[in-house]
């Protein structure tokens, strides 16, 4: 067990991508009750677009900002054109879910048409590696974790301290009352989708820098992000971040010490166990039932 610290550190580093995606999922869910299955694909599409710009000479750090903005705008367009028109029927949650599945397929097809099937090369942000607890971590990964941390702190500040952030939390709490005090629900939804998809683009960006750019970039991280969301609680932003990191660590620990081939089963077994103790996730709001 001598390499446990190393396994944990690399788990935290890979967990930062899960935590970002998880945070994006939760921000969008809280504002519009939509489980966005297309969040990873929107981020990936934005990174494909910026990759083309970077290849044409755009500085890489501007590329990151461009990816965030493009994904955010795609998010706003999605909410306006596909989600809002659904209205609020009884089975809204699952109808919206299927719409985002459909959108994911469309984006996949779009990437296929625009860039073909072969993985694209993506520039590395910083060269080199560093040794930590006896394992080599690329500077690329460490930078990714650092920027992820900064993004999460910025989001926390936004929701806690700015009036608009408070208004967004109020809308998540009681949307009808929010309208009654004069909060513009349309703007809240738009900003939530912008933020959610924007931070998903950060995750996609670093995932691409870490390996290569391909249409299935976020497939498996998104799946782990969902696991993190459920672990932490679908309604809690802090829970999503903690959940994302926890999954990163659990995944690495299970893969290293238990069995590489039953990795997913192990991770999910732990989540199921936690959910039986806390049915709404570790930090999620309990169900309100009228007696």
């Amino acid at each position: 067990m001598g390499d446990l610290p190393a396994v944990i550190v690399s788990g935290i580093v890979s967990g930062s991508a899960y935590a970002l995606l998880a945070l994006g999922i939760v921000i969008i869910f809280r504002s519009t009750d939509t489980v966005n299955f297309a969040i990873g694909d929107i981020g990936t599409l934005a990174v494909f677009m910026t990759a083309t710009m970077i290849a044409a000479g755009l500085p890489i750090w501007l590329g990151l900002i461009a990816a965030i903005v493009i994904a955010g705008l795609l998010g706003i367009i999605t909410e306006r054109t596909l989600i809002r028109p659904l209205g609020h029927s009884r089975n809204y949650v699952f109808i919206a879910l299927v719409v985002t599945i459909g959108l994911g397929l469309l984006i996949h097809a779009g990437i296929f048409v625009g860039w073909g099937t072969r993985p694209q090369a993506f520039p590395v942000l910083i060269e080199g590696t560093v040794k930590m607890f006896g394992i080599a971590l690329t500077w690329n990964k460490i930078l990714a974790a650092g920027i992820a941390a900064v993004a999460m702190i910025a989001i926390a500040w936004f929701f806690k301290k700015t009036p608009f952030g408070i208004a967004m939390r109020a809308t998540a709490d009681d949307p009808v009352a929010a309208r009654m005090v004069g909060i513009d629900s349309g703007r809240v939804a738009a900003i939530a989708w912008f933020l959610g998809c924007g931070i998903a683009a950060i995750a996609s960006f670093f995932l691409a820098a870490d390996t290569s750019l391909n249409p299935n970039l976020t497939l498996s991280p998104l799946f782990r992000a969902f696991a993190g969301v459920f672990l932490g609680g679908l309604t809690s932003m802090a829970g999503a971040v903690i959940g994302g990191f926890t999954i990163g660590v659990l995944d690495n620990v299970a893969g290293r010490y238990i069995s590489a081939s039953y990795r997913d089963t192990m991770v999910f077994a732990i989540i199921v166990l936690v959910l039986f103790i806390r049915p709404a996730g570790v930090l999620g709001a309990g169900r309100k039932e009228r007696v």
């Binding site: 459909g102 779009g110 296929f112």
Partner: peptide, 12 residues
């Protein structure tokens, strides 16, 4: 090439 367009688009 268009299979996913059709499928996803029809769903939406």
């Amino acid at each position: 090439a268009i299979a996913n367009f059709v499928y996803g688009g029809a769903m939406i």
